Amino acid sequence: TFVALYDYESRTETDLSFKKGERLQIVNNTEGDWWLAHSLTTGQTGYIPSNYVAP
Rank of each mutant, 00 (worst) to 15 (best):
T30Q: 14
A37K: 00
G21K: 02
W34G: 04
T1S: 10
T41Q: 11
Y52H: 12
E31F: 13
T42Y: 02
N28P: 06
D15V: 08
P55T: 08
S39Q: 05
P49S: 05
G32N: 11
L40W: 07
T14G: 15
V53T: 04
R11V: 14
T30M: 13
S39T: 02
E13R: 08
K20L: 05
A4W: 01
N28Q: 11
Y52S: 15
Q44D: 09
Q44N: 12
P55S: 10
I48A: 03
E9N: 10
T1R: 07
E9I: 11
P49T: 02
E22R: 00
P49Q: 06
L16V: 06
L16P: 04
I26V: 12
L24E: 00
V53C: 04
T12A: 12
V3D: 06
V53D: 03
H38E: 11
Q44G: 10
D7E: 05
L24G: 00
K19C: 08
L24N: 00
T45K: 08
Q25E: 12
E13N: 12
P55Q: 10
S10N: 05
E22K: 00
V3F: 08
A37R: 00
Q25V: 15
I26A: 08
L24M: 10
E31T: 13
N51C: 15
Q44H: 11
L16W: 02
P55L: 10
S17W: 04
V53E: 02
S10I: 04
P55C: 09
N28L: 10
T1L: 15
G46T: 01
Y6K: 09
Y6P: 00
D15Y: 09
R23V: 15
F18H: 01
T45C: 12
Y6V: 08
N29D: 14
W34Y: 13
T41P: 03
T12Q: 11
T41F: 08
V3C: 08
W34H: 07
L36Y: 12
F18W: 01
I26H: 02
A54W: 09
L36K: 05
E22N: 04
L16N: 02
W35T: 04
R23G: 05
T12M: 11
I48Y: 01
T30A: 13
V53R: 01
L16R: 02
G43S: 06
T45E: 09
N29H: 12
S10A: 15
L40G: 04
Y47A: 03
E13K: 11
V3R: 04
S39H: 11
Y6S: 07
N29K: 14
L5D: 03
T14Q: 12
G32R: 12
T1Y: 15
Y6A: 12
L24A: 00
D7Q: 03
A4E: 01
G32C: 11
E31I: 13
I48G: 01
F2N: 01
G43P: 01
E31C: 15
E9R: 05
L36T: 04
F18Q: 00
L40K: 06
